[in-house]
Design a protein around this nucleic acid. Structure first.
Length: 601
RNA sequence: UGGCCGAUGGUGUAAUGGUAACACAGGGGCCUUUGGAGCCCUUAUUCAUGGUUCGAAUCCAUGUCGGCCAGCCA
């Protein structure tokens, strides 16, 4: 009976935030749990956001609560509808099949009640569920609360806790002081309530240009916490907003909008990253100033994800895109959610990764091997095996006739017997990987060599009789003899050879473009010691080859993932234009013990 | 030279005053028609110094090192 709960608990180990949530529930501080994921729509989501998504939706899922998806869109000059759309797609993909039921949305166009009588409480509850009616829903938008936020600002002015300041941006900065030196009161700090109300109304009416005036909280210019030195609440921006159009020319700042957005949506636990820790006193101050009737949300901070061999900031990722270092936000080399998705990384692998790395307040750097292990772990269990040769070397099996077709049974997935098997055809001419033949090989090289033996997987053992070269001395083909009795079920089936390699028939295989992706950066810490991250971009992060694939791969279904045996995990590029030949992308190579062995020398 | 927050094997985390453990990475072995997967073994850890305590990774003090904060960004 308690089985599902126990399973969930096992899948999502406790962390300090879940401990707090449990304790809050146990102490009756909340009767239900409501989190939120609040990205600003100014870029694509990356794997660091994935950690936050898994945390927020994971908590909602584990405690039977809801997690609102909210656009934190209070800065019209940086945001765009393109990002609103991509964020929704990425979140839905990541939580799909796992936490869909906890996704808090709202009916399209729904907004909190219009400001009315004094004491009006603004509340916009979430709608959840996965039924067909979901088409009538959309994410929450902080910009939907501009009326309410404006109303709260007036309440603050009325109780003498906020004032309109005429200082220029430069003077505001100067009077703020520095971390080790207190600030100075603004000369406009002690205006009367009536005066402030009037100036604020005129700000809203559009009487002043950008930057001319601000609304500031009246807290303490001497505070050691800079965010308590009369922080700005509203600024003037005569700019079109992607969601509210031209209705406003004043926009709230993050600190003012965020805590109140949380309150309006009934959020209980507002989970964010460490850099907001110093803002928490302001978060609590604003909520505490207003006479809010419902339970207040509380902010908790955890360490953002840092991952080796990549950068993790929207600004830097943006730069890679706009400078053409990658093909777009969804380039398979990008650490974006859309990049991972296009590369073929399953959402479950990303989630698994997120739970493995844990949640703490320590900012360290996670080894990319942990991510790669999560991906391989998932794909090893689920991907169908296929034979493909990336860099073909032709072999003539001289004891086979030109019309001989030897059908061999190939297992689809040794990890999953129910995946069944298929037939691959051995013919007189086959391709093997160039790397799988070597003249004068080093010790412990198990593959084909002159006068050596190797097994063609699922087929038979072959012996290399002759090496054919072109005028330049380059090996162009091999002449081999096939021991057909070494096939499965044959008299020599039990014959042992050191190596088994993959292959395809030269006449019954198809050519295809395959893109081999590698890490985007050559350094584990691209920005170590202040280095420019673009100076350590990996010049070989993408290599394109024309491979030969076994015939069954001629028309693959989009979305199907494969392991090309001994090579790695691949899938058809979901962006292949319809009608054009399938391009395969490498999600991740297999672990390569031989490469590690040779690297030691 | 201000404030806030941190510090446990190489990396990330657990142990919530009572035997320091897990995963990844590394090393060795077994097995193998994937040098994959799997299985077994193994190396390696509490920042420092004091204090409290029968007992400290855990509590306290001081120090050291690291992260964050001076956008009309979020």
């Amino acid at each position: 009976m308690s089985e599902p709960a126990a399973t969930a608990a096992a899948a999502e180990p406790a962390d300090f935030i879940r401990d707090i949530v449990s304790a809050d529930l146990a102490a009756g501080r909340h009767s239900r749990i409501h989190t939120r994921f609040p990205p600003e729509p100014n870029g694509y989501l990356h794997i660091g956001h994935a950690k936050s998504i898994c945390l927020n939706f994971g908590i909602a899922r584990q405690f039977g609560g809801v997690c609102n998806l909210r656009m934190d869109d209070t800065n019209p000059t940086k945001e765009d509808i393109e990002y609103v759309d991509s964020i929704q797609a990425d979140v839905r993909w990541l939580i799909g099949g796992w936490a869909d039921e906890t996704l808090g949305l709202k009916p399209v166009g729904a907004r909190p009640p219009m400001p009315g009588a004094p004491g009006t409480d603004f509340h916009l509850p979430a709608v959840t569920g996965t039924g067909p009616e979901i088409t009538g829903r959309e994410p929450f938008f902080a910009s939907d609360y501009f009326d309410q936020l404006h109303d709260y600002a007036i309440q603050l002015i009325q109780k003498g806790s906020a004032y309109v300041c005429d200082l220029s941006p430069e003077d505001t900065e100067r009077l703020r002081g520095s971390p080790d030196r207190p600030g100075t009161d603004s000369p406009f700090r002690n205006r009367s309530v009536a005066e402030n109300l009037d100036w604020f109304a005129r700000m809203r009416a559009g009487e002043f240009p950008d930057g001319a005036r601000t609304l500031r909280a009246k807290i303490d210019m001497g505070s050691p916490n800079i965010w308590l030195r009369d922080p700005l609440l509203y600024r003037i921006r005569h700019a079109e907003h992607h969601h509210t159009g031209s209705r406003w020319c004043i926009y709230p700042l993050y600190d003012f909008a965020h805590c109140l957005s949380d309150y309006i949506e009934g959020i209980t636990h507002s989970i964010c990253t460490l850099e907001f820790e110093v803002h928490r006193p302001l978060y609590d101050w604003i909520l505490g100033q207003l006479n809010l009737p419902r339970a207040l949300p509380h902010q908790f901070e955890f360490a953002r994800l840092n991952l080796g061999y990549t950068v993790m900031s929207k600004r830097k990722l943006h730069q890679l895109v706009t400078e053409g270092r990658v093909t777009g936000w969804d380039d398979p080399r990008m650490p974006t959610i859309s990049g991972l998705r296009r590369r073929g990384v399953p959402a479950s692998a990303v989630r698994h990764f997120a739970t493995r790395i844990g949640v703490t307040k320590f900012s360290g750097q996670t080894d990319v091997a942990v991510l790669e292990h999560s991906i391989r772990d998932e794909l090893n269990r689920t991907a169908q095996r296929r034979l493909a040769v990336l860099r073909p070397l032709k072999i003539i099996l001289t004891n086979l006739g030109p019309d001989d077709r030897i059908e061999c049974e190939a297992v689809n997935n040794p990890e999953d017997p129910s995946a069944g098997s298929r037939r691959v055809v051995l013919t007189r001419e086959v391709f093997i990987e160039q790397d799988d033949f070597m003249e004068g090989p080093p010790p412990k090289y198990f593959r084909l060599r002159p006068d050596g033996d190797v097994r063609l997987k699922y087929a038979c053992i072959i012996h290399c009789d002759a090496v054919i070269r072109d005028a330049a001395g380059k090996v162009t083909e091999l002449h081999c003899t096939a021991d057909l009795e070494s096939r499965s079920g044959g008299a020599n089936a039990a014959r042992k050879v050191k190596g088994t390699i993959h292959w395809v028939s030269a006449t019954e295989s198809v050519p295809a473009e395959v893109r081999l992706y590698d890490r985007l950066f050559t350094e584990q810490e691209p920005e170590k010691d202040g280095r420019d991250f673009k100076s350590v971009l990996n010049p070989r992060s993408l290599e394109t080859v024309t491979a030969r694939l076994e015939a069954s791969l001629a028309a693959p279904a989009l979305g199907e993932r494969f392991q090309f045996e001994r090579l790695g995990y691949f899938w058809p590029d979901p962006k292949t234009p319809s009608g054009s030949p399938t391009v395969f992308l490498r999600t991740l190579p297999l672990k390569d013990t031989w490469a590690k062995e040779t690297a030691k020398i």
